[in-house]
């Protein structure tokens, strides 16, 4: 095996670095391997569910419902990705969603017009994120402790404001932010699409995006390069809080009820989808396309299992297993698409 490689004329190697340009297919597969892997997972799952439940899974109603569920999760996961990219994480997003849900519901029930209540709700989310950012960036509290403290505080505050209960009789206009459709498209999916576009723009086209990735990759390098590191960390946490607040409003709209425990589970689900999508815990690496596909994968999985009548506890177990499998697959080159692709191209090479 090695004898024929060494007998072949030496490839253009200078200084030990392969300077030969890899083929287009090779470089595409290489660059997008995480996304392609999830895409395969999504297709397999979708086909399996469609085959098993042709009457209930592959209907427009189910699709619409999935778009609503996925939209909310995507908004929260994008926020989470900002914080993950910068090298932290935020476990207070679920509590923030609940707090914003209660605040917005109270304002609306109290007669505040929706045009004022929603911005206030978003501001509450942003403030929660900002405080997280101050704690992590300036006071240098570890993200886990800081956001755990914030989680507990926000949950307590939400229950105090809402008397631990639910708030109903919300105005019907709120339904346009998560439950009802914009034209024919589900509003939740549309909002998520807008958020996705803006987030992509910030990460790819603004200097802030470059700095966020760089801080996650090496905080010291970025500081020495003259970037005000703490400010950008605070920005990341603020964006995360803001988007958690938006997710909270969308979820309130979807269930038509304000409740402090509404966002429970989103903290871990948002981290899980981002990690499945290739965002590295520890920071510096990640793409929104991966996050989007991660959200779709989880949504199809849970929807399918719902239709199959699998109980929620077992669903949780399956989600956990999928998370671990996804991360293992993305790290094991032989199991991954890239490994398979290189085997197909040149079986003798490996």
């Amino acid at each position: 095996m090695s004898s024929d490689t060494s007998a072949a004329p030496a490839p253009s190697r200078t200084h030990g670095v392969p300077l030969k340009k890899p083929s287009l297919i090779d470089s595409v597969v290489r660059a997008w391997s995480t996304e392609l892997q999830i895409l395969v997972g999504i297709v397999v799952l979708a086909l399996a569910f469609a085959w098993m439940f042709p009457d209930s899974f592959s209907t427009s109603g189910t699709m619409m419902n999935m778009a609503r569920v996925a939209g909310i999760l995507l908004v929260v996961s994008i926020g989470q990705s900002f914080v993950l990219i910068v090298g932290g994480f935020d476990i207070s997003v679920g509590a923030t969603m609940g707090l914003v849900s209660i605040v917005v519901s109270l304002l609306l029930v109290g007669g505040t017009p929706i045009g004022a209540a929603l911005p206030i709700g978003l501001a509450v989310g942003a403030i929660v994120g900002f405080v997280n950012g101050i704690g992590v960036a300036f006071l240098r509290i570890t993200p886990f402790v800081m956001t755990l403290g914030m989680l507990t505080f926000a949950k307590g505050l939400a229950d105090e404001l809402g008397d631990g209960g639910t708030i109903t009789r919300l105005p019907s206009a709120l339904a346009y932010f998560g439950r009802r459709n914009w034209g024919v498209l589900p509003s939740s999916g549309c909002i998520a699409a807008i958020v996705l576009a803006v987030a992509w723009f910030v990460l790819q086209r603004c200097r802030a995006g470059l700095y966020l990735f760089a801080i996650g990759g090496s905080r010291e390098t970025t500081r020495v390069a003259g970037v005000r590191v703490a400010a950008y960390e605070i920005i990341a946490y603020t964006i995360c809080g803001l988007l958690a607040g938006l997710g909270g409003i969308m979820l309130t709209s979807r269930v038509s009820v304000g409740q402090g425990s509404l966002g429970q589970g989103y903290e871990l689900l948002s981290i899980a989808t981002a990690v499945i999508g290739g965002v590295a815990i520890g920071g510096g690496v990640g793409r929104l396309t991966g996050v989007l596909l991660g959200v779709l994968l989880i949504t199809i999985l849970t929807t399918g299992l719902d239709i199959a009548g699998v109980n929620p506890f077992i669903q949780q177990m399956i989600t956990g297993i999928v998370l671990i499998i996804a991360v293992v697959v993305s790290q094991a080159p032989r199991l991954s698409l890239r490994g398979i692709a290189s085997l197909l191209r040149n079986p003798a090479h490996r």
Partner: peptide
């Protein structure tokens, strides 16, 4: 402290507030 190992050459080059204006039209990348 001098490079961000996980990121590309291009991003490592651009990691500077003083980059030439041609690469930063309208303050964007």
């Amino acid at each position: 402290a001098a490079i961000v190992a996980k990121r590309s050459l291009r991003e490592n080059l651009a990691l500077s507030g003083r980059i030439r204006h041609a690469a930063r039209r309208f303050g964007l990348r």
